[in-house]
Amino acid sequence: ALNRGDKVRIKRTESYWYGDVGTVASVEKSGILYPVIVRFDRVNYNGFSGSASGVNTNNFAENELELVQAAA
């Protein structure tokens, strides 16, 4: 299972961040479909780089994520 702070690569092909590595911000335990919230260094097309207006978190299912580096 994934944990907060883990570095993960995104495998959801239609995602803006496909192939990117993000950090797990939190994992919901309530049984929702996309329980893993991942935070990225770059914002998506809703904002400009360096601006706070873009979105830099997204929810994924565990099977859409590949663990790159476990949290220390």
Results as ranks from 00 to 15, higher is better:
A61P: 00
D20Y: 08
T57I: 10
R4F: 10
R4V: 13
G5W: 03
N3H: 13
E66G: 02
S51C: 15
I37N: 08
A70E: 10
Y45D: 15
K7T: 06
S15H: 01
F60Q: 00
L65Q: 01
G19A: 06
V68F: 04
Y16C: 11
F40W: 00
F60C: 05
S53P: 10
Q69K: 07
Q69F: 07
S53I: 10
G19V: 06
G31P: 09
S51L: 07
F60P: 00
I32D: 12
L67E: 01
L67M: 06
G5P: 01
G22C: 09
G54Q: 05
A52L: 09
V24K: 01
V55Q: 07
N44L: 12
L67V: 09
S15L: 10
G31Y: 10
F40N: 02
S30W: 09
N56T: 07
A70C: 14
Y45Q: 15
S49R: 01
G47D: 15
V8H: 01
K7D: 03
G22P: 04
K11S: 05
F48D: 15
V68T: 04
N63W: 13
N3T: 12
T13G: 07
D41Y: 05
V24N: 00
D6V: 05
N63I: 10
K7I: 10
A71E: 10
E62K: 06
I32K: 07
R42K: 14
R42L: 09
E28M: 09
R4M: 12
S30Y: 08
R39H: 09
N63Q: 10
K29P: 12
V43W: 15
G47T: 05
F40K: 02
Q69C: 14
V27Q: 03
I32N: 13
Y45M: 15
G31K: 09
E62I: 11
E62V: 12
K7C: 14
V27N: 04
N46W: 05
A52F: 04
K11N: 09
N44C: 15
V27M: 06
R9G: 03
S51Q: 09
T13E: 10
D41V: 09
W17R: 01
P35I: 11
D20P: 00
V8E: 01
V68K: 02
A25Y: 07
D41H: 11
D20C: 14
S53G: 12
E66Y: 05
L33Q: 11
T23R: 04
N59R: 07
V38A: 00
S26N: 12
F48R: 03
S53W: 05
S53Q: 13
N46D: 15
L2R: 02
F60R: 01
A61Q: 07
E14A: 13
R39Y: 11
Y16G: 02
E66H: 03
I32H: 11
Q69E: 13
I37A: 06
